[in-house]
Amino acid sequence: EEAIQNFKALLSDMVRSSDVSWSDTRRTLRKDHRWESGSLLEREEKEKLFNEHIEALTK
């Protein structure tokens, strides 16, 4: 649960536009030290959280 919250915070800070792809964003996020705290999450979970974040940005 904490890993999810940390990853959501990372997305909020780093992803402000809804027209970015997961693969491009992932490359950028990996450069942030907080990426490692999400290592407990599966890749699919990270992508799902990313997609939810993008959906929220479009509303």
Rank of each mutant, 00 (worst) to 15 (best):
K46Y: 14
T25P: 00
N51Q: 12
N51S: 09
D24Q: 09
K8G: 01
T28H: 12
F7D: 01
K31R: 11
W35M: 07
L41T: 02
F50S: 04
S21T: 14
M14Y: 15
L10S: 03
Q5A: 08
S12V: 12
N51F: 08
R27P: 10
D19S: 08
L11Y: 02
T58A: 12
V20G: 06
I54K: 08
E47K: 09
R26G: 06
K31G: 10
L49W: 00
L40V: 14
A9H: 11
D24T: 10
W35S: 07
E55G: 09
R27L: 10
H33Q: 15
S37Q: 14
E42I: 09
R30Q: 15
H33M: 15
E2V: 08
L11S: 06
L41M: 06
S39R: 13
L49D: 03
S21F: 00
F7A: 05
T58D: 13
G38S: 15
T25F: 15
S21A: 04
S12C: 09
T58Y: 01
S21G: 07
A56Y: 09
R26F: 14
N6E: 10
K46Q: 14
R34N: 07
E55V: 12
L10P: 04
D13P: 00
S39T: 10
F50W: 02
S17T: 13
R27W: 03
K46A: 15
L10N: 04
D32L: 05
E44L: 03
S21P: 07
K8C: 03
N51V: 04
T25V: 15
E55K: 11
S21H: 05
W35N: 04
F50D: 03
S39M: 12
V15H: 02
K46T: 07
D19A: 07
T58E: 13
R16P: 10
G38D: 14
E52H: 05
L41S: 06
S18P: 15
D19Y: 03
R34H: 01
T28P: 01
N6Y: 01
D19W: 01
M14T: 11
K31W: 05
S18D: 12
A56W: 10
S18C: 10
